[in-house]
Structure formats: structure tokens, C-alpha cells
Design a protein around this nucleic acid. Structure first.
Lengths: 148, 148
DNA sequence: ATTGACTCTGACATTAATGTCACGGTCTAT
DNA sequence: ATAGACCGTGACATTAATGTCAGAGTCAAT
């Protein structure tokens, strides 16, 4: 395994953490190559290209793709996400004003869901408790099956 | 428009708020009839049937469908939602003992999800904040008077 | 120069949720 | 009894995100 000076790419990598190829980005994020290309077609991410046409991502792309995936899991569409990214990357207030209500709406929905889940949670807890106390109540008796 | 004693259905409705037909449920929730039937096929909601085969929903179904739609908008699948609804709605404690471990598991999952949501929430909040602060930064020039 | 791993594009498939249409049955006011 | 507004099922279409496959080019190590 002669390791000569040849591995330029790795060297550059280590030196600056400069660019990623799509496969590396995929592994770094868990997103499939297919999906990353799809995000690009949707305008969510725009890699440079090498002479030969390979996509070239800078390291921020990892964070970017992770964010995209998080929002997708949250039920946002690529279209909506595109708005966010525009808003964050460029300083155009016009975009931001457009996009802000979407954020706020989503926030409201999330709050609602958290509330619901908390309610469900305590509901479940109650039920478990009542099962347990019933059990200890009837521990020595048998099969008295009542219902309210 | 002679309004006689005949409108039994309405009468019953007013008396007890008893049942809804699918069209009424649809209007009450904003979900399409198609979607409601889909939710049923996925096991998320199980209406009674009249003699003639019409679906008959009790009024809680409105809340139910609203919850389903909220979760869907948040990126949960009908399959995931099904689990929750079973826990909350299946209040028949006939098979509680068998179900207790399931409850506990569910509780754990719910806790996990709440945590995730809280994290996402603060992520969104940060982003909104950063938009706002950028805006107020640029606000110092220009007597732009916006606000809701 | 050849091989193997990687990339490119493009096409077709799939899954989930929903829309839409067609055809037929039900209910109710006239 | 008939019209009109519902409802039932079933089939096909569509959208978004992703999977998968095919044919061809690139790159790095031998």
C-alpha cells in the first residue's frame, strides 16, 4: 500500500474541508443521492460543477441538507423550504416577509400538536394508573367484570 | 316552505347532537369526503352504518378528524396516527391487561415525539427571530411603519 | 490501458394522500 | 312518483418525494 503524494483530493480535503462530491454529501447527511439531486432540481441547493460536470458541494451543504430533511419531515414542501432558504441566504426583506407567516403558521401547528400530545400523555398515564389500582384492588378476588 | 313536524332528523340532531353524515362531517372539518373515507380505510376512524349503509358519525368525529388532519400536516403518516387514536379512543377497558405494555410503550414514544417537537419548535423560533432582527436592523433608516 | 468506484442524465416505478368521475342506491319535499 | 340532493363503491389520475435501473462518462490506482 504505497501511499505517495498522489492523493491530492484527500489532502485538499484535510487542509480546508473544501468540497464534497455528491456521494460524500449523501453519506454525511443520510439523504440519498437521488434526493439530493431532487433538492437541487427544486432549487433548494445549488452546487458548483467541476470541469467534467461533477457536482461540487461546500461543507455547509451538509447543514443545509440536514435542515431540508428536517423540514420535510415536518411536513413542509420543498417549495416552502425554498422560500426559507432564499430568506436566510439573501437579505431580501421581500422574501422574508412572504415567508414569515409560513413559519409562524407552522409554529402554531407545532404548539397545537405538543399540547395534544401532552393531553394524550396524561390521558394514557391516568389510564395506566387506573388499571394498576384496579389490579391491586381486585388482587384477591376474581373476574368481577364491571363497566361504567 | 311549510315546515311541519316532519324533519325528524333535524329534531333528533337538536335534541342530542347525535349523528353526522359524511357530508356534514366534511363541512364541519374541512376534510374532503374522499379523505374521510380514506381515513376510515386506514383504520383511523370507524363510523357506524345505518340500515341503508350510510356512514353515521358521532359528534366526537369532528374533533377526531381535525386531529388527524393536524397530524398529517405535521408530516405524520396515517399509520402512525392510527396508533395514537387507538390509545385515546378505545376506551373499552375489557382488554386492559393485555394492552398495558402497549400503553407504556406508546407513552415512551409520545415523550420522544414531544421532545423532538420542542426541538424543532425552538429551531423555527430561532429562525423567525433572526428574520425579525435582520428586519429591525435595516429599519433604522427608512421611516417604514409596518406592523400588524 | 484497464479496472473499479464513482458520477452524470434520463426514464420508469412506487408510496401516500387526495382529486375526480361514473354508476347506482337512499331520502325527502313536493 | 319524481326530482334533487345526498351517499355508496370502485376505478383512474395526480402530486410530492423517493427508489431504481440503464447507458455513458470520469477518476484514481495499478
Amino acid at each position: 500500500m504505497s501511499r505517495s503524494i498522489i492523493n491530492l483530493r484527500s489532502a485538499i480535503h484535510l487542509k480546508e474541508g473544501w468540497t464534497l462530491k455528491i456521494g460524500e454529501l449523501s453519506k454525511a447527511t443520510g439523504a440519498s443521492i437521488r434526493s439530493i439531486r431532487y433538492y437541487e432540481k427544486q432549487g433548494l441547493i445549488t452546487p458548483a460543477r467541476t470541469e467534467s460536470g461533477y457536482r461540487e458541494y461546500h461543507k455547509f451543504a451538509v447543514e443545509q441538507v440536514n435542515t431540508i430533511r428536517l423540514y420535510l419531515k415536518l411536513g413542509l414542501s420543498t417549495e416552502q423550504i425554498a422560500g426559507f432558504l432564499q430568506c436566510v441566504l439573501m437579505n431580501k426583506e421581500a422574501f422574508c416577509n412572504e415567508v414569515l407567516p409560513v413559519y409562524r403558521q407552522k409554529l402554531k401547528e407545532i404548539d397545537e400538536q405538543i399540547q395534544t400530545l401532552v393531553r394524550i400523555r396524561s390521558n394514557l398515564e391516568d389510564r395506566i394508573q387506573s388499571i394498576l389500582s384496579e389490579q391491586t384492588d381486585n388482587e384477591s378476588m376474581e373476574g368481577t367484570n364491571d363497566e361504567h
